[in-house]
């Protein structure tokens, strides 16, 4: 079980390099939050003011498009960061976070985080780098999915199964680009 009184480097390896005093500065800024199984930590569209560090339990991140059915985007385990977009930009929550089992989290407000970054506190810099890494990884995943989606869209236009019209269309394009004379 993760300790409840402090942000433990055992649960959050990203803080492994921080000294005790630096961890204490972080603890000052972090507020403990408990969410019961089935309850939402925040909802898509809410105004976001803080990020969370998941200390215990499990949280599912879901989102829907224009009120449609919800799609599960991620299932997070202890050590995860969530809601990080809110401390970077003032925008509504892009997803809903629901506790799958009872969860405990550390909440850090946008203003606390920004003050700490401005004050060059190491925990904030470490966290900022970590958020940047998470966003970068997510962007890479999204890019991959986007490419796959574009490829699927093309597939729909040009079924590779060999409709004759599509075959001729592909041939036509190739002839007109590769074999100009």
């Amino acid at each position: 079980m993760a300790p409840t009184d402090t942000v433990s480097p055992e649960v959050f390896p990203l803080f492994g390099s921080l000294g005790a005093d630096e961890l204490a500065l972080l603890a000052d800024r972090a507020t403990a939050v408990a969410v019961a199984a089935g309850q939402a930590l925040f909802r898509q569209g809410d105004r976001g003011e803080s990020l969370y560090l998941l200390a215990a339990g499990r949280v599912e991140v879901v989102a829907s498009e224009d009120g449609g059915p919800e799609h599960r985007l991620a299932t997070l385990d202890p050590g995860a960061i969530l809601g990080e977009v809110a401390v970077l930009i003032d925008a509504p929550r892009t997803a809903t976070a629901v506790a799958v089992v009872d969860a405990r989290l550390w909440e850090i407000s946008r203003s606390s985080f920004r003050d700490a970054v401005a004050g060059n506190q190491r925990w904030a810099v470490v966290l900022l780098l970590s958020i940047a890494r998470v966003l970068a990884e997510r962007l890479a995943t999204v890019d991959g999915r986007l490419l796959a989606a574009i490829a699927r869209e093309r597939e729909v236009e040009e079924p590779s199964g060999g409709g004759r019209v599509a075959e001729l269309e592909r041939l036509r394009r190739r002839l007109l680009t590769d074999w100009t004379f």
Binding site: R164, E169, R172, W179
Partner: peptide
């Protein structure tokens, strides 16, 4: 043959089957 085949193939795909 590539020139000949290419021109016939182009005419064919332009006209459609």
């Amino acid at each position: 043959y590539i020139v000949g085949l290419g021109r016939v193939a182009k005419a064919t795909v332009h006209r459609g089957v």
